[in-house]
Design a protein around this nucleic acid. Structure first.
Lengths: 202, 202
DNA sequence: CTCCCATGCAAGCAGTCACTTGCTTGCAGC
DNA sequence: GCTGCAAGCAAGTGACTGCTTGCATGGGAG
């Protein structure tokens, strides 16, 4: 395996755990199974190394995209939501570290990072739902997009950290999020109720 | 002003900016206008100091509470949402720091912290809405509560950091969140439409 | 006035930080 | 065999870390 790539991966991992200050060059080198000096020969400084590492992790192949012309909003949103949730969950600690570090090291956070792009894509999709008359309730696509994304974000950050608040199954929660959201934008009926909505009352 | 309180406030501020590692005893002392040694005389160690500081900031007088028996869901939820949003916004960096630090210093985060309590209160309120037949759509109160709280959380964390994603007015956004949420739980009609819902399409 | 207690100051402890220097090792291509 | 390059190793730089020691100072209580 490429030594440079191994270093970058280790750097991202260590940064996600400890932030900028916690990501010591010694730990990164140890994590990568590499001499500390090799880091500096490849990247010059700790800052440049972390910059490259985070950029690499953020640049991810996007798979599940929302279609330009909506057909089955419930199904399409659900698969998209599941995909975004996956992304958020396995980058949870990295995202936390970036958010905490953004005031002191704003250059570390990639400007057009993945979640931002996701909200934009969702906004366009919601606008299409509106334009095609599928979503009938009055709403602003941008606000609704940040809303749904916020739901996923909050769940991804909270679940696992505060388990007694999220005692439900993840996938069931996602289904309910989408269901409630569709009703909220007035697209529940048009979405084609392929499954009876099941609310798991405690 | 009490010197102890001044130290605690400074500690919380510095911790919010730089996390555990960034909150050096020298910086805290300087921020509090106090000799570094005074910190140790009062709190013994940096860890105990930060523990106390975060606990103090989290222990906040809660004002806007949700009524046990809902009357006007739209109005009640809106004032509650505004209050929680205020709380989240001016503790933004502290919350970020805590989330980033939770893996390495879990003892720093107060176990029954404010946002957690807020979700619980919201859940009870939503259950009451359901029990009284005001919210007619099928939904699980716990899931819906984490959903609405997640929306606020996401907005509070994102707005200001990614301004081009949140180009709308905060209060208008809150109104739309509540509106969409009420429709989602099937309580839009019963909520008494005191204001025409205005969707600001771009 | 005396005593006490909180605070400040100066200095220093051992440890860690990012980063550098000088030199050695291993390996690929010619 | 020679050259060149990537990587390792040992050692050290000055700066910063949490925390301690010894001593001075001030002001309120008795």
């Amino acid at each position: 395996m490429d030594i440079q790539h191994r270093i970058l991966e280790a750097a991202a991992r260590v940064f996600a755990e400890g932030g900028f200050r916690g990501a010591t060059t010694r730990r990164i080198a140890q994590e990568a199974g590499v001499n500390e000096i090799t880091l500096f020969r490849h990247f010059g400084s700790k800052e440049r190394l972390l910059l490259a590492a985070i950029a690499v992790v953020d640049r991810v192949p996007r798979e599940a995209t929302l279609p330009a012309r909506p057909r089955d909003p419930r199904a399409e949103l659900l698969t998209w939501v599941r995909h975004e949730m996956d992304h958020l969950l396995d980058r949870r600690s990295l995202i936390c570290a970036c958010m905490a570090e953004i005031s002191e090291h704003p250059e570390l956070v990639p400007p057009g990072n993945h979640p931002v792009a996701a909200v934009r894509a969702l906004r366009d999709y919601l606008a299409a739902l509106q334009a095609e008359g599928i979503a009938t309730a009055p709403f602003d696509p941008g606000t609704a997009a940040t809303m749904l994304m916020g739901v996923l974000f909050g769940d991804a950050m909270g679940r696992g950290v505060i388990p007694d608040l999220y005692d439900n199954d993840l996938d069931q929660a996602l289904e309910q999020y989408v269901e409630l959201f569709l009703r909220g934008i007035g697209a529940a009926a048009a979405a084609g109720k392929r499954a009876r909505t099941r609310a798991t009352r405690r």
